[in-house]
Nucleic acid binder design. Structure first.
Length: 327
DNA sequence: CGGTCCACCTGTCGGC
DNA sequence: TGCCGACAGGTGGACC
């Protein structure tokens, strides 16, 4: 379910349950979910046991838990965007949810989920569930240990409560997301103009701007009235700002909607609830009336195209692809 | 080097 | 009923 808002909902939910607790036992139920840990499941488990969780940090759709011995203890870290810190090496438990991953806080008495892949037992804490479970149907996501390294752009940001001057090695290539206070539109636009590709492809490129997936890309394009195949090197500054603002708006709304489902014991990553069904204007609406055109007394139906081997939804009237090749 | 394609997985749904 | 293909919110590495 996870694009930026869903991952951020998970991060926010997780932090109050796991920060400061120690991982006492690790059970890798399906080794495929830790395949990105090159040294194998035993090494993964052995190195986690006894580690204390210091925080939950996000960059784009990547989520990680800095562990004991990380200089992250300096929680009064300056949230500046400058990179001038020289922190010591440290490790983190990295999580990516892929297409279907969930991180759930559960009591030990709760029966194993059908697709339970990894179980982390945590030190006892008053009123808190004993287990952090990684559940994943399609196994595109996973857990692994990674080094925390100094970063060129001032740390994870991404709405983390304590931005660290370190970033997980495996997320170092990920750009900041549009909701990140340190996100630079100027840099985004400069890099966008040098690309020779289609706009949606660029929006989905996590190295250019992070957090946007197939749903929010289509929604942002619809709201900005731009076509998914629009060549990036023809985009005017105002158009780029429009689509970025749209992405920011739709993801902010989704975040607000998702936050309410997260006040219980578990991280409910059921992104299909509430928001999506009601608020989407393009994604998944093939054959239905474009709401904007309908409001203008026009009739047009949302169409679906194959783009990048996945579906793209758009309105042929208000997001036109010009025939003469001029944008 | 940047852009594009495809493998990686399980499950569900609609058509025949 | 069952088989089969299409499709599903992502990513990295192989390939040009």
């Amino acid at each position: 379910m996870p694009e930026l808002p869903e991952v951020e909902v998970v991060r926010r939910g997780l932090v109050s349950w796991v920060r400061g607790r120690t991982i006492t036992a690790v059970e890798v139920v399906d080794p495929r979910s830790v395949r990105r840990h090159a040294l194998g499941p035993e090494d993964f488990a052995g190195n986690l046991e006894g580690a204390r969780v210091l925080d939950v940090v996000r960059r784009g759709k990547f989520l990680w838990l800095p562990l004991t011995d990380s200089p992250a203890d300096a929680s009064a870290a300056d949230p500046s965007c400058d990179a001038d810190a020289t922190p010591a090496p440290a490790v983190a438990l990295m999580a990516h949810l892929g297409m279907s991953g969930q991180l759930l806080m559960q009591d030990s008495s709760v029966p194993d989920e059908k697709h339970l892949k990894v179980r982390l037992r945590l030190s006892t804490a008053d009123g808190m569930p004993a287990e952090l479970r990684f559940v994943d149907q399609r196994i595109f996501g996973g857990l692994f240990l990674t080094a925390l390294i100094p970063t060129a752009d001032g740390g994870p940001g991404g709405l983390a409560e304590t931005p660290l001057p370190l970033i997980a090695e495996e997320a170092a290539h990920i750009a900041r997301d549009p909701l990140d206070p340190c996100f630079s539109f100027d840099e985004f636009y400069r890099r966008l103009r040098t690309r020779r590709t289609g706009l949606k492809r660029a929006l989905l490129d996590q190295g250019l701007v992070s957090g946007i997936g197939n749903i929010y890309a289509d929604e942002a394009l619809w709201q900005a009235r731009l076509h998914f195949a629009r060549p990036t090197d023809t985009l005017r500054r105002a158009e780029a700002a429009r689509v970025l603002d749209a992405a920011r708006e739709v993801m902010t709304d989704a975040l607000a909607a998702g936050g309410t489902s997260f006040d219980s014991l578990y991280v409910n990553v059921n992104g299909a609830s509430g928001y999506f069904d009601r608020s989407l204007n393009a994604y998944g609406r093939e054959g239905q009336e474009c709401r904007r055109c309908a409001a203008a007394s026009l009739v047009s139906l949302i169409k679906r195209d194959q783009f990048m081997n996945r579906s793209s939804y758009s309105c042929p009237v208000c997001q036109p692809r010009p025939r003469n090749g001029r944008w």
